[in-house]
Every structure is written in structure tokens, then in C-alpha cells.
Design a protein around this nucleic acid. Structure first.
Length: 454
RNA sequence: CGGGGCAUGGCGCAGUCUGGUAGCGCACCUGGUUUGGGACCAGGGGGUCGCAAGUUCGAAUCUUGCUGCCCCGACCA
């Protein structure tokens, strides 16, 4: 993409309404614009990141055997009355009345809808287990939206719903999602900590929140330090999943609401005790027959008797992750994107548009990298060098390729690693080879800055 | 919803107390000089001062009502 053809309205100054770093940077980098409190328009650069995250989430869901559907944003109130949540949900649910005075709502989640679909279509245990997911916009009318897209009212979320014949089978469905989540966050360049979460009236050990460490995180996390260095499991969903998950669930990890100080002291050696702030980016949950019962979602078992199916739901905050990643990956100058989600992997800066040699070399590099399938942003604007450098640092593309008159005359391209700041001058071939893969420093592990606060 | 704050050109702000020609920086447009980390000179465009009533000869400024946004708290992917 040539910068002169693109829509990328960057801001030199911080907008006054943005307090936390990810919100500031998203506004300054021209990723989003606020439409109303907690409601955002996604500009081209932000949309690219959102789509990349979405695609990684989708790939991992598919690998784990989940099947994609798409449910609407608006739902009839009727099914929520069936489950009993229409009255329970409170003011967070945005209620709408259509021209026929029918009660609708902008979906805050989709348990009812998917249960309705499933119960109307599936009669036999032979069609279980099944896991259906979608990636869709949701709305929760938060009392106080804040932190930009991290806590908006409208947000993009992946939510999956599993259907099983019994709890044993549901446990397997849960474990698959657990593994898929660890893999997803790993691919996004994040280190997520699975913390035990409150299972509510159902009880049991089948609820985890996935938290990434960040100084501005909303929740406090207490965990064993080894969880920060565990690599994500392989995508092998046929083996003994409990064994795969065990290394993640056996170590102490809880958020403030579930924290047990005495247990923490007893289970975790002092030098391994991590206390940090974090952002919840995913939540998986087994809820048993909570919706299938009241909503009559039953299938015939092998013995011919009907049973209420066992359900679980599994959410990932896709739009929240955009902010979350920035919280974990930035520096003084701006964003530092992990390769996998960078809106463009490479920024080419032509320092002197109009100069025959720099135009030729910049154009050649841009064409060559683009042809290789890389996402390249080519800054061909006739701006001052400083402005282009600052802009490129701000939007945080992993690699920068700088071409000026002196280098062009010598056939050299200056490559800068955004994360480390390291610069090297290379000839065309060497530059192309280097730019084709992630910088060696990528992907980052959990934010060291956040850990220091422990 | 309780407490606090803000609303003046695209962005950041001054002006409001003490009513009297709407201003500054950045951005934008034109011309020129510049050109490796946010240049300089000259000229220029753009604002019903959030909305509505009121007080007044006269309101960005005073009064009342409303709306929107931000921050702190209780709640959430």
C-alpha cells in the first residue's frame, strides 16, 4: 500500500480524552475514531489488525474442531424469556422495540440463540459432540465504558458453544478449547496465564480466564512464575488432553477475586511468586444444563432416553485484544507490533520522493516484497524525513526499510528493527531476505515491565 | 447510578472570575528557500464558542434547563 493512496490519519498530539496508552496510541496511529462512549469506528490500519487477530482465532478454532456459524447481532427477547435471563440481565442489555412493538435486544452473548438453533436441529446423541462458534459484534451497555476498545460497549468477540451428551464428554470439549486458547494467544505474540475462575452455581474446576499481563490491567493476578515460560501445546486433539493441560492447571494461578493468600504462600515458593496486573482476554466455561434444561435442548441417548445436553461457552475478546496487545507491546515512540498481527509487516520509507534513484530503489523493494505476499506500507509522501520516521515508529511495523539518496546511490537499504532499534545497511538481495521473516526479537513473551511490578 | 471535571476551527489549548472587534500552537492551502528524526519566510482559508431559553444596548463570558464526553467508585470479554 502506498501511503499517498491510503487513509491513515495520524495525530502528532495526544487526544485529551484518551488516558491509557493503548487508547492514546490507537487514536494517534489512526486505527480507530470514537463514535460515542465505548463505540468506535475502525479505520483501515486498525481494521487490518482486527482482521489478523480474527483470522488467527478462527484458524485455531477450526483446528480444534469447532465449526463457524454467524448469528445476528439483534435477537428476539422471547428466547431470553425462556432461559430466564431477560429479566436477570439488567440494564447492561440494550433493549430495542421494532415497529411492530416486538421486543428485541442487541446481543450481549449468544447462549440462548445457539441453544435454540441446536435444539431445533439435533435429536440424537449421534450428532454430538459438536462445537459451534462465531465471531460477531456484541453490545453490553456498560455503566462506564473506558480504556478505549478494551472496555467498549460494542465489541467484537469470538464465542464458541459446545454440546455434549454428558459431563465427561463436555470436559473433553473444554480441554480442547483450553489448548486452542493457549495456542491462539501464543500465535498472537502474547503470553496468557490461565487462571482459575469462579464457576458459580455449577461448581467444579471447569472455568478459566486467560489473562495477559499489562501494567494497566484491570485485574490483579497471582501465579507461579513458571506459567510465564510455558510454551503452548501442539495442536494434537486426539491424545490425552488432560495430560496436555495439566502443566498449566496444576500451578497456582488466580485473579484477585479467587485469590487465597494462604494457599498461594503454601503452594508457590517465594522466589516464584508473581503478583501482577493483567487484562482478561478470554474466558472458558462449562455450564452444564443451565440453558438446555429451561430451553428444552434434548437429544436421545444411546438408551433411547432423552437427556438435556451439556453445554460450555468459550469467549475471546477480539477487539479487546487489539488494545491488550498494544498495552503489552509498545514503547515511548509508539506501538511495537508482533509480526503475526502487524497491520503491515514492513514499512518502506522513501526519504526523497522525486529523486530518480531513491524512487527506483524504493519502488523496486516495495514491488518485490509485495509480490512475495508480504504486507508492505510504502511511505512515498513528500514529507520531511523526521515526520516519516516518527509516523513509522508510531504505527509500529516490525521492520522499517529506509531508502535515502546516499544509500540509493550505493545500492544500500537501511533496515531498522522497530523493537530493538537496531539498524543495518544491506544490499537489495540481503535486505529482501531479511525482511521476509519476523525480526529475531519477535514474538515477545509476557511484558517484562508488568512482571517487575510483582 | 453516586462523586468530580470538561465542552471555543481537524488536534491541543488561552480567553469566562471582571460582558464590548474570537485568539495562540500544530495541522491545512499557495509561492519560495529547504530536505536522514516532526524546517524556515511570506501570504491565505476555515469557528452559529455543545444545544435551548433568559438577563442586557451588547453574551464565548452572567442565569436556568438540557445534551455529550472524560476521570474516580460499584459491574463486565
Amino acid at each position: 500500500m502506498r501511503r499517498t493512496d491510503y487513509f491513515l490519519p495520524t495525530l502528532k498530539e495526544d487526544p485529551s480524552e484518551a488516558q491509557i496508552v493503548s487508547h492514546r496510541l490507537m487514536l494517534r496511529a489512526g486505527m480507530v475514531r470514537q463514535s460515542a462512549a465505548g463505540i468506535y469506528s475502525w479505520l483501515p490500519l486498525g481494521l487490518r489488525v482486527l482482521r489478523k487477530i480474527e483470522e488467527i482465532v478462527r484458524e485455531e478454532q477450526n483446528l480444534a474442531g469447532a465449526i463457524e456459524v454467524l448469528m445476528p447481532t439483534l435477537q428476539p427477547a422471547e428466547i431470553w424469556r425462556e432461559s430466564g435471563r431477560y429479566e436477570d440481565y439488567g440494564k447492561e442489555m440494550l433493549r430495542i422495540t421494532d415497529r411492530h412493538q416486538r421486543d428485541l435486544l442487541y446481543g450481549p452473548t449468544n447462549e440462548e440463540l445457539i441453544t435454540q438453533i441446536f435444539r431445533d436441529s439435533v435429536r440424537s446423541y449421534k450428532e454430538l459432540p459438536r462445537n459451534l462458534y462465531h465471531i460477531q459484534w456484541k453490545f453490553r451497555d456498560e455503566i462506564r465504558p473506558r480504556f478505549g476498545v478494551m472496555r467498549g460497549r460494542e465489541f467484537l468477540m469470538k464465542d464458541a458453544y459446545s454440546f455434549d451428551i454428558d459431563e465427561t464428554s463436555a470436559r473433553t470439549a473444554y480441554q480442547k478449547m483450553f489448548i486452542a486458547y493457549m495456542r491462539t494467544f501464543d500465535r498472537l505474540g502474547l503470553r496468557a496465564i490461565p487462571v482459575a475462575a469462579d464457576t458459580g452455581p455449577i461448581g467444579g474446576d471447569l472455568s478459566h480466564e486467560f489473562i495477559i499481563l499489562a501494567e494497566t490491567g484491570e485485574s490483579e493476578v497471582f501465579c507461579h512464575a513458571d506459567l510465564l515460560s510455558r510454551a503452548a501445546p501442539d495442536a494434537d486433539y486426539d491424545g490425552d488432553l488432560a495430560t496436555v493441560i495439566e502443566p498449566f492447571t496444576s500451578l497456582y494461578a488466580r485473579s484477585d477475586e479467587m485469590h487465597d493468600a494462604a494457599l498461594f504462600e503454601a503452594e508457590v515458593p517465594t522466589d516464584k511468586q508473581v503478583r501482577a496486573r493483567g487484562i482478561e482476554v478470554g474466558h472458558i466455561f462449562y455450564f452444564g444444563q443451565k440453558y438446555s434444561g429451561p430451553m428444552g435442548c434434548r437429544v436421545a441417548g444411546a438408551d433411547g432416553k432423552e437427556v438435556d445436553v451439556h453445554g460450555g461457552s468459550y469467549g475471546i475478546g477480539v477487539s479487546r485484544l487489539v488494545g491488550g496487545i498494544i498495552e503489552a507491546c509498545h514503547d515511548e515512540a509508539g506501538i511495537v507490533w508482533p509480526w503475526a498481527v502487524a497491520p503491515f509487516q514492513i514499512g518502506v520509507i522513501n526519504l526523497k520522493p522525486g529523486d530518480e534513484q531513491t524512487d527506483a530503489l524504493s519502488g523496486k523493494l516495495y514491488a518485490h516484497l509485495t509480490q512475495k505476499g508480504l504486507d508492505v506500507l510504502y511511505d512515498d509522501r513528500n514529507e520531511r524525513a523526521g515526520g516519516k520516521f516518527s509516523d513509522m515508529d508510531l504505527i509500529g511495523l516490525p521492520w522499517q526499510a529506509v531508502i535515502g539518496p546516499r544509500g540509493a546511490a550505493a545500492g544500500e537499504i537501511e533496515i531498522k528493527n522497530r523493537k530493538t532499534g537496531e539498524k543495518r545497511s544491506l544490499d537489495f538481495e540481503a535486505a529482501c531476505a531479511l525482511l521476509a521473516s519476523p525480526p529475531p526479537s519477535d514474538p515477545p513473551s509476557a511484558s517484562p515491565a508488568a512482571q517487575d511490578k510483582a
